[in-house]
Amino acid sequence: MDLERDETIERVAQALAVVPPRDAQAVSRVMAAVRAHKAQRPSRLTLVMEWMRQPAFSVASAGALAAAALVLGFFSRGAFGNAGSDQSARSTLEGQPTGEFPIVTGGVLPASNSHEVRAVPVPLVFDARNAKSVVVVGDFNGWDDTKTPMVRYGTDGPWTATVLAKPGRHVYAFLVDGTTLVADPRAPRAKDLDFGGDASVLMVTPP
């Protein structure tokens, strides 16, 4: 047991047990320095602005940034701007798709794709023997008169096209010779409270 009572260790222990007096002035100096440092610290906005202003771009990094911006700008333009609706349409007969299948666009308001439903093909027929051209326009193709031109069946037959529309209620019409909008005589009339005019209702059933 005596071996464990080392004299040196006991002296060190006694020395450490004495707490030195606290220098109040030193403490206040440290705290003042901390407060001053905090007050001088620039805001996040200032930091961001300084970061953006720093002319530290190398030629390579500037080029890469420009390329990235161009690519992203290009794709985002395609996705948000020039896309049609998420439903499309195409002319049929002779198997010649003339419409395009545009990029699906997303809404900015809360939207979820968890219960999206698929569009189904719906054939449309329209008798207009004297027409030079007939186009289907409706909410399923964004009322775009370049998307769904109809095809004449034979040389003197009716005009036909197949549109892709999601289950639900749709409004559409036929644009004859690029000037006259005509409702589909085979479908119920749509009551348009915005513009009036001729249009029809298409109720699409899920497959």
């Binding site: 948000f80 701007g81 896309a83 049609g84 609706s85 998420d86 666009t105 997303g106 809404g107 900015v108 308001l109 326009v137 909410d139 964004g142 009322w143 775009d144 008169d145 019409a173 644009l175 909008l181 348009d192 915005d194 513009f195 009036g196 005019g197 249009a199």
Partner: peptide, 26 residues
């Protein structure tokens, strides 16, 4: 778009009006 409505339905409504020969006011 700035208020959170996507372009597609708005553009479709505009083109519907054009197809029906509506005025710019309508």
């Amino acid at each position: 778009l700035s208020r959170g409505v996507p372009v597609e339905p708005m553009m479709a409504k505009a083109l519907e009006g054009v197809a029906k020969r509506a005025s710019s006011k309508s």
